[in-house]
């Protein structure tokens, strides 16, 4: 059973269509990357999934059920803009919000200490939130999101404002949660994180699905017929190469439709050229994203 199943979701504000016939699902043990330009409808989609607002039409099912109060204890949500009760200490905030998720105080305290340790925040547990930096506050909220061991986790820009060390810590925790069978929706603009973490990607623009696919398949689908080659010296003419583009340390060779990378590699070997690097070009998710969004605007 899918953790989240969204079917033909539509939502309109006044004369603006925020979500337009959106359908997707997220399975347990999967991270779905939710990407799209600003105003694409990501936040509206998340808020409808979490039942903060009702769709005009369409159905959302969480673990096969319509959203209800009992299901909320199985969900962890990290909003994009984060606030904390300023006068509470970090541990008091964690304990209060975890109690609202049905956690026993002793268990919550034990789990909080483990997570505070993992995120390097243990020494700040008794600090008031107003005394913490934005990044620290963000880590506390991340802990609040996952402390109750939710089966569905919705993360909206979890890495923004974090230093590389803490980003890696959070990334490792997210990876472990997926391995434990949690279903995760990761909404972010950081495409490299989507590439590193996500199994599938849902790209939306103007409320509509632009791309919804497995990440490996997506790369293969959008792969252009070219190779990156780095050699010592100049590269002469090669049959099957229709264009070339020089970069800092290599050259990208664009191949004719009937030419494969293997053909080029064989030619280079035959010519006795010493090859420092030979790589089939794979487009980054960022490139795919930009191309699709531009195409959609056109």
């Amino acid at each position: 059973m899918a953790a989240v199943e969204v079917s033909h979701l539509c939502k309109t504000y006044a004369d603006v269509t925020a979500v337009n016939d959106l359908s997707f699902s997220v399975d347990p043990g999967e991270i779905l990357g939710l990407i799209g330009p600003n105003g694409a409808g990501k936040s509206s989609t998340i808020k409808i999934i979490l039942d903060f607002m009702r769709p005009d039409s369409g159905v959302v099912k969480i673990f096969g059920q319509q959203m209800n109060e009992a299901l909320k204890d199985q969900i962890g949500y990290l909003p994009e803009e984060r606030g904390l009760y300023k006068k509470l200490t970090a541990i008091d905030l964690i304990l209060y919000l975890s109690s609202l998720k049905g956690m026993d105080k002793a268990m919550a305290e034990e789990k909080a200490n483990v997570l505070l340790e993992q995120t390097g925040m243990l020494e700040y547990k008794n600090k008031k939130n107003k005394e913490m930096s934005k990044g620290m506050g963000q880590l506390i909220q991340f802990i609040v999101t996952i402390i109750h061991d939710p089966d569905l986790i919705v993360l909206d820009e979890p890495f923004s404002g974090l230093d590389p060390v803490r980003t890696e810590a959070i990334q490792n925790i997210i990876g472990n949660l997926r391995d434990e069978g949690k279903a995760i929706i990761l909404s972010t603009h950081q495409m490299n994180k989507v590439e590193e973490l996500c199994d599938r990607v849902l790209m939306i623009n103007k409320g509509r699905t632009v791309l919804y696919s497995d990440l490996v398949e997506t790369r293969a689908k959008f792969r252009r017929n070219s190779v990156q080659v780095a050699i010592d010296g100049e590269l002469g003419d090669l049959p099957g190469v229709i264009d070339r583009k020089l970069t800092n340390s290599s050259v990208e060779l664009f191949l004719a439709p009937d030419t494969t990378p293997q053909t080029i590699l064989d030619q280079l070997r035959e010519q006795g050229i010493a090859i420092n690097r030979f790589e089939v070009t794979t487009p980054s998710l960022n490139e795919i994203f930009l191309n699709l969004v531009r195409a959609d605007h056109e």
Partner: peptide, 13 residues
């Protein structure tokens, strides 16, 4: 304003 309300409403009605 701080969107803490979103976190609360993901837990309670």
């Amino acid at each position: 304003e701080s969107r803490l309300i979103d976190v609360l409403f993901s837990s309670v009605s």
